[in-house]
Design a protein around this nucleic acid. Structure first.
Lengths: 172, 172
DNA sequence: ACCTGAACACCGTTCAAGT
DNA sequence: ACCTGAACACCGTTCAAGT
């Protein structure tokens, strides 16, 4: 059932991922979903956890750039993945898998820096995916030649900044 | 009419800011709104621009921390402000006022770093506001003692990271 | 120029009742 | 234990018609 929601998300996007549509996909009445999940939010939390499933276990030997990259990849693997994860992370449902991996790469005891990096990755990827959708709809402003062109550069610049933060700390 | 939307947003939040509710507030039929705005998205773009109106003009003499702080303040001034700005920024509606101010503080010709900082600020503030709302509803997980407690620390850590990026560049 | 009235095609959620 | 049927209180948007 979560698998079906994940496939539907990837096919139609978050705005069109409704309980009614998911029910139709499962050949079931909408009300049947509420025996399994108390609300749509709870269903989305399960979907978010599945999206983050592919990120590797925390490993101090993995560079920040690689860890951040695999989190970005996990979010990009499904349409609107970042937005789904963002909304459930805000409610503190789901695991802290992503932050733990980032924390390990930063070699930091407290999680402040890891939280900041995760917030950057979520913000960046949410924007990127919304832009991808806007572009496919043709709803983008005409002045923007290639909406997603410099996204990688911006992402790298951000990760480099956070990397220099940890480099400045570790020598102590 | 945008003022009314802004007040309504602050009162009820983005999920409850509907065209029908706004119409009721204005003592008008919902369809009347579509003479002024082609869609809800367009209305939200106007609201987003108003939210960002209070951020100061670009000034190289203003520190990155101050500029980022005033952008954060502008977003926090209205309920769900960050999410509204995020969704219209993705569509590239509205101005680049925030990024221009950040670019000036970074003393940078290209806008890559400014974009990265803005993405961090948007991600951070969106998460913070969603958490504030979840808390007021009481819908937050029980293990989180004080959801918004360390938000300032995380924000400062992020901005410090981006600050060190520009510091490492300017000596060249 | 600006708005109404009525409709179209949807939503999330609840809850008694069925099997 | 798991699902149906029917309802409740909503959505964004369109469009002919009014003034």
């Amino acid at each position: 059932m979560v698998d079906c929601a994940l496939r539907l998300l990837d096919r139609v996007g978050l705005p069109d991922l409704s309980m009614r549509r998911l029910a139709t996909e499962l050949d079931v009445q909408p009300s049947a979903l509420y025996w399994h999940f108390a609300s749509k939010q709870e269903l989305l939390a399960a979907v978010a956890e599945r999206i983050l499933d592919t990120i590797p276990a925390p490993d101090a030997a993995t560079s920040l750039a690689d860890t951040a990259g695999s989190i970005r990849d996990a979010l990009l693997a499904y349409r609107d993945g970042a937005e789904v994860v963002m909304s459930t992370y805000a409610l503190r449902l789901g695991t802290r898998r992503a932050q733990d991996a980032l924390g390990a790469s930063l070699g930091d005891a407290d999680q402040t820096a890891a939280d900041a990096v995760f917030e950057f990755v979520l913000g960046h990827t949410t924007l990127l995916q919304q832009r991808m959708h806007a572009q496919s709809i043709g709803a983008v402003a005409p002045d923007a030649a290639d909406p997603t062109a410099h996204a990688d550069e911006v992402f790298d610049a951000g990760i480099r900044a956070f990397g220099s933060l940890s480099a400045a700390r570790s020598p102590r």
